[in-house]
Design a protein around this nucleic acid. Sequence first.
RNA 1: GGUCCUUUAGCUCAGCUGGUUAGAGCAUCUGACUGUUAAUCAGAGGGUCCAAGGUUCAAGUCCUUGAAGGACCGCCA
Length: 478
Amino acid sequence: MSKRVKIKHLIKEGQPGEKVTVSGWVRTFRQNRFISLNDGSCLSNMQIVVDFENMEESIIKSITTGAAISASGEVVESQGRGQRIEIQAETIEIHGLADPDKYPLQAKRHGLEFLREIAHLRFRTNTFGAIFRIRHSASFAIHKFFNDRGFYYMHSPILTGSDAEGAGEMFQVTTLPLNDVPKTEDGEVDYKQDFFEKATNLTVSGQLEAELGALALSEVYTFGPTFRAENSHTSRHLAEFWMIEPEVAFCDLEDNMNLAEDMLKYIIQYVMDHNREDLDFLDNRLQQEEKSKPQHQRSPMALIEKLEFCLANDFERVSYTEAIRILMNSKPNKKKKFQFVIEEWGADLHSEHERFLVEKHFKKPVILYDYPKDIKSFYMRLNEDGKTVGAMDILFPGIGEIIGGSQREERLDVLLSRMKEMDIPEEEMSWYLDTRRFGTCPHAGYGLGFERMILFVTGMANIRDVIPFPRYPGSAEF
RNA sequence: GGUCCUUUAGCUCAGCUGGUUAGAGCAUCUGACUGUUAAUCAGAGGGUCCAAGGUUCAAGUCCUUGAAGGACCGCCA
């Protein structure tokens, strides 16, 4: 096995006359002669030509879709069209059989919902191979982007004793026996007897901890799993998802927007440069799918076209106030076509409004900023007008909110009064407030939902199909 | 948490207004062919029509309840 060559390398570099060994999983075996072998290194398969007259019959019988094999032989120029080279097999070693009566994957297209039920095997399809190679690339690109700019990768805790992050419902973590929970005298759960001697949860955000890091290391980012126990039934929410949260000292909202836009474009460019074959495949797959849809439901741009457009154009930066003006003057608002008609400044924007701005009005990614303080979190910096905070959301076509961020409130007195307004207990946040007591400075950051980014780059429709083992209400299989 | 949709062969689906023995393509198996690449040709096997109850002379088809899956809304990334 030491001489094994990856198919990706062979396709690029392989020369006729070389003796090679390739290992992988059989996709199809045609005419007892042609094996299409995939090893996951790239989308393309290597064609192995078998001389079945001179091959043991038990081996020929074992070459079925899904079987794991190694093939050794000489690289030759392919006589057929469709590939530059192929391998003339001299020996074939069978590592693992796949009973064709029971193996659920066939050389045909399966529905995504069926594949979700066999998520442990869906890696072996072209579509999911492409998605997870792209997911890897995007993940690597994010580390490279921040590393090249002098950011430090900071590991924020996954188990947290802080319950004031305010980003959503939390999963409780405990070692207390659920069928016999110890109680205090007044009938409350006695967390003193729990593992951490206090109530703990899975993190919903690493932001507050990242702020602590940024106020010493200047520029940090987190990239880790995040957990929200929201009962969300949509195609863009997960109970366990990966989030990227950069936090930058001496940075205002505009710097923050610039960083976010640069990062998103960098990721897209990186994937375009390194995963072209996978993108072409997904693009093609999507176009086939579009053909079966009625005209008005078809997307205006193909996948790669959409990514290129995104790279070539500045994101539209619009203040909340301006967005409200546009929405109030819009046709659907005037004709009361919106489910929630915008009546006045201060209204919360629903996804129908965001979609109108992104998909109908501007037709490109939009950054909305300076939201009313009443609809945003306590840590966002109060603007001079006293009414708005330095928040920004980046909205992508077809996805909605992909990034949420803000300049943080660095002034202790303002932060304390905001916390009081919003009933955030001061005692529990003293560690956070210390950064404002000692050497506070302007700083800003944001959170990127990694799976939403992958959704956009792959053109997939459901977030459950861009993470290997999705977690959502009622589902924690595998 | 709310609204709506779907469930028929291993997979993707058709099945009209309720009416004989429930169909197709792909996959599988057998045979033919052997430079194919979604191979082709011939044949075969494969069904708890999601479940339970009801209406009816008659239910895959209509009704009720439940289950599973999905879409959208709210919450957000």
